[in-house]
Design a protein around this nucleic acid. Structure first.
Lengths: 206, 206, 206, 206
DNA sequence: CATGAATGAGGTTTCATTCAT
DNA sequence: GATGAATGAAACCTCATTCAT
């Protein structure tokens, strides 16, 4: 007894081990430059083992996405103080998101990497699942906005739509990070991020 | 006589022909899935011919970028009515940008594809050149905002920063297009785009 | 049981098989004209298989070098009769070297091919290793000369330097083989080789 | 009048120009890595022009050989003082050859590059011509040895054979240059060259 | 004479995936 | 469960050579 559980645990560990290596390589070299052989070598597993745990390359990388989205959701959930004002909640979410993009750069980049790919790299089925996952975080933001409207603080706009707009604006700004040293000064994107939120809230208030 | 000129013209045409094919394939399949062999086959040229016109894959794709950025700049320039109000100018630019993203989807996607790639695909030198090109369109937007501030219409904010913020917001929204049919309804992103601009202007006004 | 060992053995065999083919092709066509594709085709393996056994072309050809130098060393070692006189030892080594150049023409040519290439084809690291290997055979010759000096037979010269000089002279002559049928008569280089040794010993004796 | 001559001169210049570039590239990169396109680009001529002056790549590189052998012959001829002793003549030739290998490293390397190639890169016809050219320098050395024999200074050996033996020894030593920094100290090959000649003359004297 | 655009085979290397052990 | 040898297509790029202008 317990042997079965040990095996289960080992199996989960192996999978983690593969995902860890894949994540690292993906960020180092990009999707196409990351090969199964490389993952095998670096994770000190055999190629066959990887194909045992993941049907194919696609499934492996999709797992990374889901992982990332889950972590994002948790991070945001943790950042919200239930008793604070709607504006404070929105600011908390915003700052949690920015921090996530820095602290978990790997995951953030992976999420965006797949989100902004011109072609659906994944099967539709998989993509739905992933998008649904992303939806969760949007809802959290929408709830805060909704609260602000109900309390008369914000204009009577559609909360979900505002959430999406704000979220998109955030993403737009964070992507500016890549323009550092060319168009933008170092870390200018962060102050732009904050100012962007200000402008949005200015526009939202009654 | 004129033989030389005809040759010149033919050369330009060939180059266009290659770029056309590359552009199409790039959008169909993405950067890494687009091979020189494919471009050669579809453009009915030999592989060698392509390498005669472009030093390597990178240079070919960079040409597409620059092409796109130039077209974008022209499109925006044309959209502005010099005599209209600052708000109208901003709206014109915004709607020109949205239209550009639809009408010249190929170019728009390519611009964004490279802009948001996690790894610098191009040489730093090349990247600088490209970013500088992009800078031009930002300036046009900044000018309109500046005008609004001068005329007392807008708050006394930094025009260039606002331009970047707005531009980023636009990009953020346009990327939502990919979420159509999963999270978003069809063309919902367009109305979000418009609302996003409204919210921004709301926040900017005195 | 023994399955592992059999696998090991098969792996070694495959590697030999590739080296055999490469060796043959290299001698037939020269380094640059020998392609991995050709080696794959003739050894009835896939291209990928060759890259499984050898990191790249360089490593493959370096293996041939090392192989050859090892065989050369062994051949010379075997040729020496410990009880014979220094002159006899030198003659034995000389004749062993000439025989090696004929019997193991493939290896000999490969050794010389890389030794006399105008550009360092190999990485410095690799080249060091190879040169060190070559050093061993020189030492054997130097020992014999040293013995002759100690016994008062030879002038008090530097043994290692004489060894190198003699060895170089041998190589110089053996290369003449290529001039057969143009400048030289058939096998004239062999008698030149012997005479060359005579002249050298004449000059070395007290 | 004179137009014809001017054209002739221009033609020769063009040919030189091509050969200069080819020679430089050959030594930089080796035979196979030197392409006609590269030569064209660097010599600021068209590919077609090169094919006008040389039938193909082979003929181009053969010209370099012949060039080099002619220069070698002239250099040696100049080095000999008709009134000096046979030994002095031999030493003059030897030192001229060593100097040639340094001063005209390009030519020397090219001569050796083709001489020691495992396969006949050239057509037999071409190879004959080249070898004959090389023969001339050997004869000069043989004459000096012959003189020494006639004057009772040297043993009654075959002069031509001794010339070849000595020449080969020289080549053997000069090739050691490549082993500098691995097996040999810097410029050790030069002192070996001199000692090699000493040893040979020791063996030749009565 | 000279140009340079075009060819297309062939170079090295990497890859996802399979399957016998 | 796990291994890793093997496949072969496909990636990018270069080459000697030709030929219409």
């Amino acid at each position: 007894m317990g042997a079965k559980e040990r095996r289960e645990r080992e199996k989960r560990q192996r999978k983690s081990q593969i995902l860890d290596t894949a994540r690292a390589l993906l960020l180092e070299k990009g999707l196409n430059a990351t090969s199964i052989n490389q993952i095998a070598k670096r994770s000190e597993l055999s190629v066959g083992a990887i194909y045992f745990y993941f049907k194919d390359k696609e499934e492996l990388f999709a797992s990374l996405q889901v992982e990332g989205l889950e972590l994002l959701h948790k991070t945001i959930q943790k950042a919200i103080n239930k008793d604070s004002s709607p504006e404070e909640k929105i600011k908390s979410i915003a700052s949690a998101y920015l921090r996530f993009s820095e602290k978990h750069k790997n995951y953030f980049d992976i999420i965006n990497y797949f989100l902004t790919a011109p072609k659906t790299v994944f099967s539709p089925e998989l993509k739905n699942k992933i998008d649904a996952h992303g939806n969760v975080s949007i809802s959290t933001l929408a709830d805060a906005i909704s609260e602000g409207i109900d309390s008369g603080l914000f204009k009577a706009v559609n909360p979900r739509r505002q959430a999406i707009i704000l979220w998109s604006a955030f993403n737009g700004i964070i992507q500016l990070k890549k323009l550092q040293k060319t168009i933008l000064a170092k870390d200018e994107y962060k102050s732009l991020y904050i100012e962007s939120l200000e402008r949005f809230l200015d526009g939202l208030r009654n």
